[in-house]
Write a protein that binds this DNA or RNA. Structure first.
Lengths: 358, 358
DNA sequence: TTGTAAGCGTTATCAG
DNA sequence: CTGATAACGCTTACAA
């Protein structure tokens, strides 16, 4: 049991009294060399001892108030839902961001309750601003207004993966091309000639880039597939994947391989295939884009992987670089494009010899 | 574009000046009736207008300093890892906790980077304490020391799911019995007589309670299974599930149904079954305990569900109740036991007539 | 109904 | 090398 008990927590004044020094000395002693004030080793030890005895912990609010910085960066994952499968990406980023930030002496506050009511989201953004975060990382922000909430107040922003067009914000995107090229090449090398595509249609630049990459890779392999082999879903849900795959199986010549633009879509695809007794990869090869939980499915999916750790770390670095500049000094946004990479697993193999159906 | 620009954020003094009133009036006006000071509707409007024009947001640090409370509760998920599948529970709780807290006028700070080095965890706990959280919710704390870090400083604690024995902390547990009873009954009603069990051995009270519940239910159904049908794994990982299931399939009379004490274990089981061409539920019925992502697997698993929303909400309620008492008044810990419930899906069916193997 | 002033816990400046 | 002192932004007695 500690002697402090549950009364009021110890303050630096308490530590000062106990060590027989002034409050200022306590502050200097605890911040080591970071302060330009020097304190003798003897008193330094005395202060440290007093601090541990009183289990002293600085009051972050007071610190933030006095220095003009909080040492906190905000992280806003988007489209969080009840279930992890609906949007798994933010979860992965979260730990990498927190870890990287800590490494640089920052803490992360993540805003964690998404709801259909925008009001709540605004409340959460205000929470970050009221905490005086020094910068924020926004994962696929829903609107450019959301980004501007921060930039308008001079808070540096890094957008991830699906950025809004806001000039003042840095971005980190992922280049789908390499990974998808390798995916197509991989399927061709296995001997596939009937390759289908499942993805969201829409005009989102990220989605369009993926489609373009796949089309280009197929053409390069002299395998341009006719339109019916491209299934465009209206959402990224598992159900959409289920429906898309069902349609593809009704084609006169069903595909022997399918490229799916998202692990969640793939979830639905696998469910349909299981129901219909279509074995993977014996009767159909499957590759997903994302590699969030692809490794954990049955069978484990060959997948185009995104470098989540890099994304998280770079996001922190980009942000912290900008915090160095005193005012609007070298406060210019940067843009990073990170490569993707094919991860081979058990869901791809050579096409079946005869017919594909059960 | 806002007029504030990126200089320094507006303070209540700025608002006061702009509205032509004193700082105190601003405070009173913004906190409505919560302050016992009344302010005329006219000036109130003037203050509000000024505040919005300046996009004023209070400085949480200053507020925390002055009132002696932060309005923040901490949440510490445990055993977070890189991948969500290794411990999916915290993720579910997170949004429910945040939502419930906000509903009660609190914010949640979640500590998000777990690492093998304990040092980092301590840093994160100190972050919460330095933020002067008013209470914390600990999900399955790793050690009782971790709990005591908080109670020793008079910070109320609610432990979830796998509590440590610390008298001062409230707990929320789930009662596996009902759900597991229903699970066994469900399998019996379908005609199963060879039911296997996969779970961690160990002496953890939660694990033991689950095993006891299953044993009792089986006996009540006059179906006490011999020892080889109980597979005890050394971990809760997918690999452990994979190995356990592989062993069960080598039994002279393989089971026609299996109860798995965790969705992650089930992940490995499904992978093995897929590899071995054992169809679910045709050749083997599968029920998992947990219902975290059971719905998303192929086939969707019948699962014993835990009431995550309730757990999150109750945790917040338990905490906030204790914050009301001024000092060590009615500051007594409470203990809640919530029921579990069987959720039927596609992974259970009648046993196969003939032999079970491919 | 409103303004004045003090103080929450820290740190930075300035004397000693 | 160390001690006073002021100030960060806010709320709350208390006075007007």
């Amino acid at each position: 049991m500690d002697s402090v008990a549950n009364s009021r927590m110890a303050t630096s004044k308490d530590v000062a009294r106990r060590a027989g020094v002034s409050q200022a000395t306590v502050s200097a002693a605890l911040h080591g060399t970071r302060s330009n004030i020097r304190v003798s080793e003897a008193t330094r030890q005395r202060v440290l001892a007093a601090a541990t005895e009183l289990v002293y912990l600085p009051h972050l609010g007071a610190q933030t108030l006095r220095r003009q910085r909080s040492g906190i960066i905000g992280y806003v994952p988007r489209f969080l839902r009840e279930t992890l499968y609906e949007r798994p990406v933010p979860y992965y980023l979260s730990t990498h961001i927190a870890r990287a930030a800590m490494h640089h002496g920052y803490h992360v506050i993540e805003v964690n309750a998404e709801s259909s009511q925008t009001r709540m989201s605004e409340q959460l953004i205000q929470f970050l601003l009221s905490q005086r975060v020094e910068g924020v990382i926004l994962d696929a922000p829903a609107s450019s207004d959301e980004v501007r909430h921060f930039v308008a107040r001079g808070v540096p922003v890094v957008q991830l993966l699906r950025p809004q067009p806001v000039a003042e914000a840095s971005t980190i995107k992922v280049d789908a091309a390499q990974g998808l090229n390798s995916a197509v090449d991989h399927l061709c090398a296995l001997g596939h000639t009937l390759i289908a595509f499942i993805g969201t249609g829409g005009s989102d630049p990220v989605d369009m880039a993926r489609l373009t990459s796949v089309r280009a890779a197929l053409e390069r392999a002299a395998l341009a597939m006719p339109d019916p082999y491209f299934a465009f879903s209206d959402s990224r849900s598992a159900e959409a994947g289920y429906r898309a795959m069902r349609n593809l199986l009704t084609l006169p010549e069903p595909p022997t391989a399918v490229l799916i633009m998202g692990d969640v879509l793939a979830l639905g695809v696998l469910r349909l295939l299981y129901e219909q007794h279509v074995r993977v990869p014996d009767a159909l090869s499957v590759i997903s884009y994302g590699n969030t939980f692809a490794a954990f499915l049955s069978p484990p999916l060959t997948s185009v992987g995104q470098p989540f750790q890099e994304i998280g770390e770079q996001a922190v670095v980009l942000l912290i670089e900008r915090l160095g500049g005193t005012t609007a000094a070298n406060n210019i946004p940067e843009h990073i494009l990170l490569p993707t990479e094919l991860v081979l697993r058990a869901s791809t193999g050579p096409p079946a010899r005869g017919r594909t159906s059960p």
